[in-house]
Design a protein around this nucleic acid. Structure first.
Lengths: 191, 191
DNA sequence: AATATAACAGGACGGGCCGTCCCGTAATAT
DNA sequence: ATATTACGGGACGGCCCGTCCTGTTATATT
């Protein structure tokens, strides 16, 4: 079947991701260290380095793990309904802990060019694709004029979400989600 | 006149800020160290720590220093002209080096809560105030309906700018500046 | 059952940078 | 002349880095 030798411990993997998330939530990404994760998880440092090369990659996998039930893109046949529901789910999923984890990833991307590339082409791009698909369906239905640039609309959504995540000058609540949805809907109707 | 004792060396101050900017431009904020700044500037570590407590503060002052000629907010009497000129000046000022410095500050704010507070209430808030003043004048002239929330418009501008600075999935050029201006102008006209 | 293989926990290692301290010297006000 | 403060240079213990080694454990193959 698989390779010979002792198989990877799934429990160790989960414990490490949970420890990283817990430590970021408690002390912030700036205080996070590989040694701290190992100690918190009751694991050897070698076990972490065997599967991840930086703490940013550990946190990224922890985020992806916790985002299994991530906001599925709705498809009701109405752009307004879909957009509002998508943003409601998104802001609901962005708990204070998740907000801090996401902010950590964006910070790590500014400190490490290699991680930045995987973060952009992986995590960020896949989210953009999902939203763009929703808008493309609306455009095919005629709810958005063919002249409107869908990428610009996607950009407005994620720019507003990330700005709020990073700057924190206001709450990431349902009211904010409605404001974002309404702004994008207005832009989708304009020439 | 002033206190007794040797006065602070203005030359050392400038040299330190220049060294920090140079090192960030060369190797990125993640590689920046206090010792590296001291060595590059030909200065004692103590001289840096006497005036700044973290490398983030050094970089922040370097940015503020280089942004003395920062985009002054225009006031021509036309919202469209003012907004387009403001964004043209802003993207022109955001050279690759400045982009990297700004991204470093946003990253540092995610790593250090204390710096985050000063960054938000100082640097970021003052930029928002300037732009908001421009929009408020337009609203008084009747170019923007009284029902429009100016803070939301300001947020769209800086969210789009920062998203592009941080994610770098497209160029920060004049074309992008025009797109941002046009989006905000459309939102300012919508109900 | 014996053997090869690979992950595991634990710990040791040199190295880099941290932040602080001390020194002798230089530049200013009194 | 004296007090005061900044300066360059360098030394210090401490934390975390990333790697390596050891002995043990869990699997596949023979």
């Amino acid at each position: 079947m698989a390779q010979p030798g002792r198989p990877r411990s799934e429990q160790a993997r989960r414990t490490i991701l949970a420890a990283a998330a817990k430590l970021v939530a408690r002390n912030g990404y700036g205080e996070l260290t590989m040694e701290g994760i190992a100690t918190e998880a009751g694991v050897s440092k070698q076990t972490i380095y065997r599967w991840w090369s930086t703490k940013a990659e550990v946190v990224l996998e922890a985020v992806n793990e916790g985002a299994a039930e991530m906001a599925a893109v709705p498809d009701s046949g109405s752009l307004a309904d879909d957009l509002r529901l998508f943003l409601r789910r998104t802001v609901d999923a962005t708990t204070p802990v998740n907000r801090r984890l996401l902010a950590s990833l964006m910070a790590a991307a500014q400190l490490d060019d290699q991680f930045a590339k995987s973060f952009r082409t992986g995590f960020l791009a896949s989210r953009r694709r999902e939203l763009r698909g929703m808008l493309a369906r609306a455009q095919e239905r005629g709810e958005i004029a063919a002249s409107v640039d869908l990428d610009q609309l996607v950009e407005v959504v994620y720019a507003l979400l990330w700005y709020r995540i990073l700057v924190q000058h206001g709450p990431l609540d349902r009211r904010f989600g409605r404001q974002v949805a309404d702004s994008v809907l207005r832009l989708s109707r304009a020439a």
